[in-house]
Amino acid sequence: MLSSMVKEHQAKQAIKKEVQETKRKEACAAANELTQALVNHLNVGVAQAYLNQKKLDAEAKQLHTSATNFSKQTQQWVNLVDSFSSALKELGDVENWAKTIDADIRTITAALETVYKGSQEAASESQ
């Protein structure tokens, strides 16, 4: 009777061990599946962040290129405006020079007319 109780106890123990081992394996498998699911979920986010970073890098390069081109174009515009401004100043200088010459010529003309009239009057008096 005691030996049958021991055998029965050992049989129950073996069954409990098998059930425990089965549950342990199921728990390990479930933990592995959970871990894999979490890693996959995180990988999706990381992959999306990586793709977004690549897009941002490409757009940053394009923006830098556009900014450089805009800077060059702006410098060309500034040079063109400076050139135009210089040309206007030169025109102003030429206009001023022309006015000065015109005033000098009028003065000379007036002086010559006065001298001519004076010489005409002197010639008519001497006759």
Score class of each variant (00 low, 15 high):
residue 21 E to D: 15
residue 85 S to L: 13
residue 4 S to V: 04
residue 110 A to H: 13
residue 108 I to V: 12
residue 21 E to W: 06
residue 5 M to V: 04
residue 34 L to E: 15
residue 39 V to Q: 15
residue 51 L to W: 02
residue 92 G to M: 03
residue 94 V to S: 14
residue 94 V to F: 09
residue 52 N to L: 08
residue 13 Q to Y: 02
residue 43 N to T: 05
residue 90 E to R: 06
residue 124 S to K: 08
residue 107 T to D: 15
residue 125 E to F: 07
residue 20 Q to T: 04
residue 1 M to K: 09
residue 100 T to H: 13
residue 84 F to A: 11
residue 52 N to R: 06
residue 105 I to V: 15
residue 81 V to D: 12
residue 43 N to W: 01
residue 16 K to I: 05
residue 4 S to P: 00
residue 41 H to E: 15
residue 85 S to H: 10
residue 109 T to V: 10
residue 123 A to M: 08
residue 54 K to I: 12
residue 29 A to N: 11
residue 13 Q to C: 03
residue 11 A to R: 03
residue 78 V to E: 05
residue 53 Q to T: 06
residue 14 A to H: 10
residue 76 Q to K: 11
residue 43 N to K: 07
residue 13 Q to T: 10
residue 79 N to T: 09
residue 62 Q to S: 15
residue 47 A to I: 03
residue 42 L to M: 13
residue 102 D to N: 11
residue 27 A to Q: 13
residue 22 T to G: 06
residue 117 K to D: 14
residue 77 W to A: 13
residue 19 V to N: 06
residue 45 G to M: 02
residue 102 D to A: 13
residue 56 L to K: 10
residue 90 E to S: 08
residue 61 K to Y: 00
residue 29 A to C: 05
residue 115 V to K: 11
residue 111 A to H: 09
residue 108 I to R: 08
residue 36 Q to D: 07
residue 113 E to W: 02
residue 33 E to V: 03
residue 122 A to P: 00
residue 99 K to T: 06
residue 48 Q to N: 06
residue 93 D to Y: 10
residue 74 T to S: 12
residue 63 L to I: 01
residue 115 V to Y: 08
residue 125 E to D: 03
residue 75 Q to A: 04
residue 77 W to P: 00
residue 77 W to V: 14
residue 58 A to N: 11
residue 28 C to L: 12
residue 104 D to E: 12
residue 9 H to K: 08
residue 46 V to W: 04
residue 93 D to V: 11
residue 125 E to R: 07
residue 80 L to R: 13
residue 124 S to D: 10
residue 61 K to Q: 09
residue 120 Q to V: 08
residue 3 S to I: 13
residue 93 D to K: 14
residue 25 K to M: 09
residue 48 Q to Y: 04
residue 51 L to F: 10
residue 127 Q to H: 05
residue 30 A to F: 01
residue 116 Y to W: 06
residue 18 E to C: 07
residue 66 S to L: 12
residue 54 K to F: 03
residue 84 F to R: 07
residue 73 Q to D: 12
residue 118 G to K: 02
residue 122 A to L: 05
residue 127 Q to V: 01
residue 4 S to G: 09
residue 83 S to K: 10
residue 113 E to Y: 05
residue 57 D to K: 01
residue 27 A to Y: 10
residue 97 W to H: 15
residue 57 D to F: 02
residue 27 A to I: 09
residue 43 N to V: 00
residue 43 N to G: 01
residue 26 E to Y: 06
residue 89 K to C: 06
residue 44 V to L: 11
residue 41 H to L: 05
residue 3 S to T: 15
residue 30 A to H: 05
residue 119 S to Q: 13
residue 51 L to K: 12
residue 66 S to A: 11
residue 67 A to E: 10
residue 72 K to H: 04
residue 22 T to N: 11
residue 28 C to Q: 13
residue 115 V to A: 14
residue 120 Q to M: 08
residue 10 Q to P: 00
residue 19 V to K: 09
residue 112 L to Q: 10
residue 70 F to H: 12
residue 40 N to G: 10
residue 75 Q to G: 01
residue 50 Y to L: 04
residue 52 N to V: 07
residue 107 T to Q: 14
residue 22 T to C: 07
residue 20 Q to R: 07
residue 78 V to W: 00
residue 65 T to M: 06
residue 92 G to Y: 00
residue 87 A to Q: 14
residue 17 K to R: 04
